[in-house]
Structures are given as C-alpha cells and as structure tokens.
Design a binder for these strands. Sequence first.
DNA 1: CTGAAAGCGCTTACAG
DNA 2: CTGAAAGCGCTTACAG
Lengths: 333, 333
Amino acid sequence: MVTLKELAQLAGVSTMTVSNVLNHRTDKVSPATRTKIEALVAELHYVPNQNARSLAGADSLLIAVIDYTESVEDTQLVFSAPFMAALISELEDAVRAAHHFMLVRHVNSVEEIALLQQNWQLAGLVIVGMDPAYLAKVLASVQVPVAFIDTPITEATLKALAPAQRVGVFALDDAGGARAAAQELLAGGAKHLGFLGYSFTANGVESRRLSGYREALQASGEPVYVLPAGEAAFATVAWQAEHHQLDAVVTTADTLAAQLIAYLREHTTLQIPQALSIVGFDDQPFASWMNLTTVAQDTTARAKAAIAFLTASQAPIVMTTQAVTLIRRGTTR
Amino acid sequence: MVTLKELAQLAGVSTMTVSNVLNHRTDKVSPATRTKIEALVAELHYVPNQNARSLAGADSLLIAVIDYTESVEDTQLVFSAPFMAALISELEDAVRAAHHFMLVRHVNSVEEIALLQQNWQLAGLVIVGMDPAYLAKVLASVQVPVAFIDTPITEATLKALAPAQRVGVFALDDAGGARAAAQELLAGGAKHLGFLGYSFTANGVESRRLSGYREALQASGEPVYVLPAGEAAFATVAWQAEHHQLDAVVTTADTLAAQLIAYLREHTTLQIPQALSIVGFDDQPFASWMNLTTVAQDTTARAKAAIAFLTASQAPIVMTTQAVTLIRRGTTR
DNA sequence: CTGAAAGCGCTTACAG
DNA sequence: CTGAAAGCGCTTACAG
C-alpha cells in the first residue's frame, strides 16, 4: 500500500504538493509537477486513506443513512420494507455519483445518531421516517447537515429550533395523494369509503395522508370512515364490505393494500373491485404485478435531492414537497 | 467533543491507560483507575473517533456490503430487489449486533472492491451475487476476510487460488430447491414443465437451480423445457400453455413468477393453477400476498453466519450450504 | 499496574 | 508555485 509520503519522495516534492494535486487544487501546482504526480498515482495505484483524510480535517466523504424507528415491533428488518429498500438503493446511487460513501444504520434513539456522527465525523445524515417529536433533540445533538425524508417539518419550526443549522426537508404531498385516491374512488361511484393505515402518530406521514382523505370526503359530503390497521382491521373491513357498509378503501401503503387483498381472498368471497375497491400508496413493483391502483411517488428524485443538499448545495435550508401521481389499475372501479 | 487525551489529563493518567480501559484490557489496569475512567467517560459522553482508531492500527469496525453486478441493465437500483433488500436488512441487524458498522456499495468491477478496501481499511467484505468468474481477481486484490453470498465456490477452488486467505462461502441448496419445486409440480399431475430464469451464467445461482430442475425431470422421465426469460419469454409461455404444450413452470425468483402472472392476467385468459402452475423462489413477503407457491430460504441465518465469520470466527475457511423449504400456496395444483 | 514516545497517513495554516 | 512543521485522535511495542 503506497502512501502519499512515498509518492512525494518518488516525485521529489513535498507531501503538501502531492496533497494539492490529489485534491485538484490546480492553482497551487505547476502543470509539470502535476502531470508527473498524476502519472505516479496511476502507475502505483495510489489509493488515499479516508480515515487519515478525515482525521486530518478534510471534508468527510461519509454519509449515514438512518432509519429511525422506536417501536419494538419495527426494530427488525426496517431496511427490507419495500419503500425503504427502494430509497436505500436510490440513495446509494446518488451517494456514489457524488463520490461519497454510505453508512446504513437502524437506530432507535437520538443518542445513537449523535454517537454515529461523532464516531465517524460524518459529512451529513439522511434520516428517514423519524417522528417529528424527536426533532428538537436531534437538531441539538447533531452538528452536520441533515436531510429528513418523510418527516414533516415546517420552515418556521426549523428556524425556531435551530436557525443556524443546515437542514433539508424532503417531503411528499401526502395529503394530495390520499385526496386524489379518495376522489378517484368517489368518481368511480363508491358510496362508503374507509381509510387504512398502520399507525397514526401526531403529524406523521400517515396522519397527513388521512387529512387529505378527509378533505376529499368532506368536499363531497361523504361520511368519513377510519379503520386503524391492526389485528382486527382486516376482519372489520371484510364484515363491513359483506354488509354493504363499505365499498372502497384508501390505504397508506401498497404493503397494507396487498395484505388486505390476501386476507379477503383467504377469508371471503368478496370480489375486487366489484364489492370493494382498494387503493395503495407508493407504487412498488409488486403493485403492478398485483394490478393494484396506487399513488406513485418519485423516489429517485427525492433521493437525489437529499444527497445533492448534503454534498453539493450551499443553501442553509431546503424545503421540498414532492408531487405524487395516481396510477389507475385493476383494484378500483 | 472530548478526546481521549483530555480524559487522561482529567483522570491524571496516561493516554495509554485510558486506551486500555476503553478497549477492556482489564488485566492491564487496576480496578480503581478503571472505575474512575469509566465514570469520566460516562459523565463527559466520550465517543471514540473511529477514524483515529483505524489509522492507529486498531481492528477496523467497518464492514462493506457489496453488490457486484456488471451488466449495464442491472446497474441501477440493485439494492431494491426484494432479495437484496431483505439481505441488507438482515446484514445490518447482524453488523450492529456485532458492534460494527456497515458500508453499502454497488460495484461493477474488481478494482472498485480493492479501492474500497484500501480507502477504509475494512475489517471485512460481504460480496453478494458475484459471478464466480471474478473470484481469482478478487482474492488477489483483497487482503481482508471475505464472505460470499450467492457465489458458488468449492473448497478446492478456494485452496488452489488463495490457500492463506480467510474466505467464507454462504451458499444455498439451489439445486435442491428447484428439484423440490419440479417434483411438487410432477406430483400435482403436471405433464409439460418449463423453467424460467433471468440469465444463466456458468455455475451461477440460476444455473444451479436449473440443474436441480433437470435432475427431477430426468428421474421421472419428463421432457425438459428451458425458457430463458427475456422480452419474448412470457409470450412463449402463454402461447405454449394455450396450446397445451406447457402446464407448469419453475422460476428462479418470486419477482419473475409475479411478472409472469401479471403478463398472463393482462394478455390471456389462462387460469392459474388450472391451466398453468407456477412456482417462485425466495418467499418474499409479496409471494404470500399473491398466494404464490415458492421455495423459501432463511436469509436471517445466512446473514448472521456471514457476519459471524467476519467478526467472531477464527476459521480460515467456512463453507455453508443452506437448506430450503417448499411453501405450498395457490399457484400450484 | 503504569507511562513516555513514536507513529498511523493525511491536511492545513504559515512562510517563502 | 513550493516546502517544513505541526497536528488530527488514537494505538502499540517497549520500558519500568
């Protein structure tokens, strides 16, 4: 393993000149010495030691992607949830394109985030799905730029909590997506709508989708049903659909819609969409395989925006709310 | 950010004593100074700088998980493929449990692997889905322990190529899985079987599954059909099924089976499993939602074994072939 | 059981 | 355009 020092000796220059070449500070090195060193780098397959770089105070190239879930049941396998998996993949792509490296970590306390940051002198953090309740604590304990994905935060809150910090909020038009889903169902003739989510924490992503759903129903004067998903939720849906009290359901995730479909297939003879229309959220690959009507989001764009904020942007604060698209398939009338 | 040096000054001891306490070298420190330092660590929230640790020569705590795919079409989003996503999630769990950290990287050349290793002085590598053709080159350019997942390698090959290297091979009983799938179809009365895979590289995972499929068919005297998946494969399957030349298909992945089902639903009136039985591979969550008969594997166990090899084991070589289980659902007779 | 010293491989003001 | 020197925060033989 050849070092920068050896490179300098072989080239007959100081280590700092080599460092300048490696870091593309072309204004500080003559073209001649530069080409000489570059040839040497290629010939000897010099690879910089990132640990030494970080320690010496250079900009870190490490970005940590953090999935923050506190509930015990969610502790395992957070990265295999289809949305999270798609996001990780897109983030990795963007991080690599930006010549950075990506650490992936599941975390269930703010302390662990602070620890990770200090352990590795991170260049930045991407925090996914964190409950906004932890925001103040996170901002207080983190000194590097943070990109939040799926944590709804207002600019006012941000400025009040941490006016000097670099924070990016990459949100989705959650309300708009659920609103479009409900409107589509109403337009298809649905009379009794229900809404299904995993858990509705204050101001969380699912609550925002619920509010969009409610907006659509109030506008049309329809009754509002909310069936929080859980042990008995699928059975409730089935019973109500069988008794003509429910003929359409908006869900907060394709996974939830898919599980409902599987439940109905196994336990009832209800036909989809004739007896019950179902809309998912996310447009995962399996949604198309299952012919599921759903709300699509552009994960690629969000991942790119988050990484660009951390690696290329100078803006102190970036607030983004991405649009969504309804995809009509076979589970709606 | 408090440093080890400051800790030493406050405790009135040398930095080396603090280092010994932090690294649990209890035999080298008196209980009294140890408790004093530990109290200080807790009080001041000392967090070690991993970059400095690695640079100074301590065991690195960084493990890189690498997805190696060369084909251009696979370049993007490799980590969102359901199997890969599940694996990443399980690996992260195991890495965290072992008090290590995980770097995730998509790579399409051996050079990039070597680079990554030198960049970060890795503790070890997990390489997923690499074509065995690159084995020699990888072993020659990597100096740390490597765990291969889904790269079939024999112990003889390993000893011939790199007798002194620590290498773990965590394979699956691919042939057995496809054999069980084919036998299940034959037992269900299928007369004309087909086999569907993405691409059959020499000695790759899919080729191994194909060989197991062939074993089952030869044993029963049935004809062997192989339909390499691609643009026209689904149409071929449909046409043959409609003309009673095919009544059952074994696939190399749930994703492939799901896409076939979607194709048939859209373009034909063929009933599954009456007109055509289909078996997947992997038992992803959506397989159960789609009621897909499939071959299940224990990803948790494989991930744990791979990380244990890299972080806890002393064995120079570990060879594992994990058993699989057929899961009967609604897409087979 | 404890310490002084050297060193890991880089970068960064500071001079010239 | 170039260099000598100090330092980042740790660990590791080597002494005692």
